[in-house]
Amino acid sequence: MRRIDAESRVGAVRRPPRIRRVTRRRRLNRAAAHVPLLLIALAIAFPVLWAVATSFKPTQVLYDLDPFAAAPTLEHYRSATAALPVGRTVLNTVVVSAAVAIGQLVLATLAAFGLTLYRFRGRPVVFAVLVGTALVPQPALIVPHYLMVSRLGLLDSYAGLVLPQLASLALAVFLLRQHMAAFPRELIESARVAGASDRMILLRIIVPNLRPILTAVGIVVFIQTWNEYLWPLLATSGMDRATVQVGLRVFQTEQGQAWGPLMAAATLVAAPLLVGYVLMQRRVTDAFLHSGID
């Protein structure tokens, strides 16, 4: 982005200053171009804002389109937290997402290191086996995953939630290997001449230098796992290990939705990650900027 700013500044300097009318028209054009973008932003934010507004409306005016029809109330938050252990489900989701992210990072870093630093006969095969996991859609394996996890007695456990999600290593292996291959060879060789073991080279030289891409991959996997719905739905039954999406099902009863508490609960479970995102916005979007193409 910095580069583009510099570029537009160059343009500004080079623009002949005398054509003021053109400049004004340009400014108007620019303002007009913001209109569709602001409308998109509104359309995207609206469901969230509307849910939050609803969550504070007393039940009597819930269907009133005026968000300020009555004084705001916390009644829905009280019933939401009574029906759903919000903290518990958020904690479960964080633990599972973090465990999958860290687990994939460790596995992929080791594998990428082995694939980059060593030349051996089966190398292309090993690489294909690891990156080939991209060809298998995770949801298609729910039947064997369920049989495996239930036989191991791991239903309703963190291990049962995490293990089946560890194997989608393709993206992590691919990106980390690419970055390690681009790592200056001389640095590794000189460390070796100085007597460093391969393990030390990995831990002391490569990992600290690849921290940006490691963070990026970690964030992408964390968010991917955070969004995962199907497997936690199958692997948990009570609230003990339920993730936020599974927990929300408590409000879907035969009599229809309890809209007020449901909106309050949706707000509560969505809030932690959104707040975290706003706080470290740059790093998160950068993570996706780095992971797509590089």
Binding site: L37, I40, A41, I44, A45, F46, P47, V48, W50, A51, T54, I223, W226, N227, Y229, T243, V244, Q245, V246, L248, R249, Q257, W259, L262, M263, A266, V269, A270, L273, L274, Y277, V278, Q281, V284, T285
Partner: peptide
């Protein structure tokens, strides 16, 4: 723009769907 456009990526599908269901 970047912040607002990216928000739904962080809202799990079932949670976002619940918000839309109300709409």
């Amino acid at each position: 723009y970047r912040t607002v456009f990216f928000l739904p990526v962080l809202i799990p599908p079932a949670v976002g769907a619940v918000m839309w269901q109300w709409i």
